[in-house]
Design a protein around this nucleic acid. Structure first.
Lengths: 264, 264
DNA sequence: GTCTGTGATTGATCTGGATCAAGCTATTTC
DNA sequence: GAAATAGCTTGATCCAGATCAATCACAGAC
């Protein structure tokens, strides 16, 4: 709420928000991936930039009518469902470049809530317009389907982890995947901040907070990583990866680093 | 393998297989849902009817190149992933009217295997042709997205069940959902045969076979159901549903039976 | 600066469900 | 028909990880 001495900076940021997909650093990850300039402009025109969502605020809540999907520009969110008894189950954490809300398409209401873990800026994409645009642009339709398919794959791995893995393996898998996602976004794969609480991690992985805490200490004692509050420094990603033993890696090993190698 | 005295019947069945979507009893559940006659014919033309997949055979295996999605006409299958150590994790069981293989879109290889639990007949739909047809037919594109979105929702519930639910709640949730799916297909909601083994159920729900066995006995003792080998007769679906306490039901209660009420 | 509340850590205890072991029941093979 | 095999059930034991309890560390409020 306090603005302090950064108004110029603030204005610059707002200007940046008005920027188009072409200029966005997430271009390669996000919806416009692979589109030609003309098509990109069409997409750009239907996208609405909203004011940032502050930590703890909801982007949408379970039961809300579905009207748009959201591309994350900056910050991170968690999505979760709630059962009859009010128990909250976290579905996932979401990073810049990811598209949120697609699971609401069939029912036309949101079936989970999306809450900001820190200040988040998103692009709002009205779904009806996105759908009609997908008819004009073949690549866009395919990309939409492709993004949903990726989401499915990711959930499959998550399922496998919850169904069988030990607690060590769960946390290792979580950290490994997070690390890979940071890397894909141009951040460090070995050093990052956790925007979610231990409680949230425990919930996602189906275990108790105390166990998460103990495992962080254990991993540190084993020299796998250094952890201080939110800050994580991975020291031995190979061991961590081996510990994880997830389903996806059975396939992804082959084409791990084969995707992001254009300019530079 | 043995044909016995049913050749006439066999020929009739084959003829039926050649039938078009219009005549298919799964019309309301499957891909053609909501399409007009002209569009339906177009879709019909790209669909290939294959020979039945026998019990234990694979429709596709993890790692296979992705070229088509499959609509189940009859029978049931399981899909599962495999991790590095070869551990098999079942993702789901699939019934007539469901579309299989969409999770392979992004990688263009299958990320899980689909194996028949009994003799299965499927419609093979070449994906490239389906995609281009979706450009012509607005409803088809939406329906594709919608089906994937439903799949996502379903996985979210599955996640919630695995992460927190007790073993009772897991099995109750499994049986409740299965019952609802049978009902939606015009079968009895209270009496059905399980095409999968106890082992498969245990695997799906992340527990030991022994526990499944004990729970079936327990449920029977509690008067919730009667079970004899593969045959299940649900006696008290209300209690079973209450026991389940899944995420989806928090929303679906309102519009539970509000979807299927056209003719008759 | 102190106070307060929230989240994280560490230790002690307990238990739900896995694992181990054995017997049972269909179904298939010969 | 008997024998073999695969799948299911039941009982006894054990342990991974939850729960309970206490303390600690930090961020905000005033």
């Amino acid at each position: 709420m306090s603005v302090k001495t950064m108004p110029r900076n603030r204005i610059f940021k707002l200007e940046e928000l008005r920027n188009h997909c072409q200029k966005c650093s997430l271009y390669q990850l996000c919806l416009p991936m692979g589109l030609e300039e003309g098509d990109l402009n069409k997409l750009d025109q239907i996208i609405q930039r909203r004011r940032p969502v502050e930590k703890g605020e909801f982007l949408y809540r379970i039961g809300d009518p579905f009207s748009a999907v959201y591309a994350i520009r900056a910050g991170s969110l968690k999505t979760f469902t709630t059962n009859q008894e009010g128990h909250e189950q976290i579905i996932g954490f979401h990073l810049p470049g990811e598209l949120l809300g697609m699971d609401a398409i069939s029912r036309e209401i949101h079936t989970c809530s999306a809450q900001a873990l820190e200040t988040v800026s998103v692009c709002e994409i009205p779904f009806e317009r996105l759908e009609s645009l997908s008819h004009e642009i073949p690549g866009l339709q395919h990309h939409l389907l492709s993004l949903m398919s990726e989401e499915l794959q990711h959930e499959h791995c998550h399922l496998a982890v919850l169904a069988k893995a030990t607690v060590e393996s769960r946390l290792a898998s979580f950290l490994t995947q997070l690390s890979e996602r940071f890397k894909a976004r141009g951040f460090s794969a070995t050093e990052f901040n956790l925007s979610m609480s231990r409680n949230d991690i425990a919930n996602l992985l189906g275990m108790a907070v105390e166990t998460i805490s103990r495992l962080f200490t254990q991993f540190q004692d084993q020299g796998l990583l250094k952890v201080e509050r939110k800050h994580v420094h991975i020291l031995d990603s190979a061991s961590l990866h081996a510990m994880a033993n997830t389903c996806s890696s059975a396939i992804s090993e082959e084409d791990d680093d084969a995707s992001q190698n254009s300019s530079s």
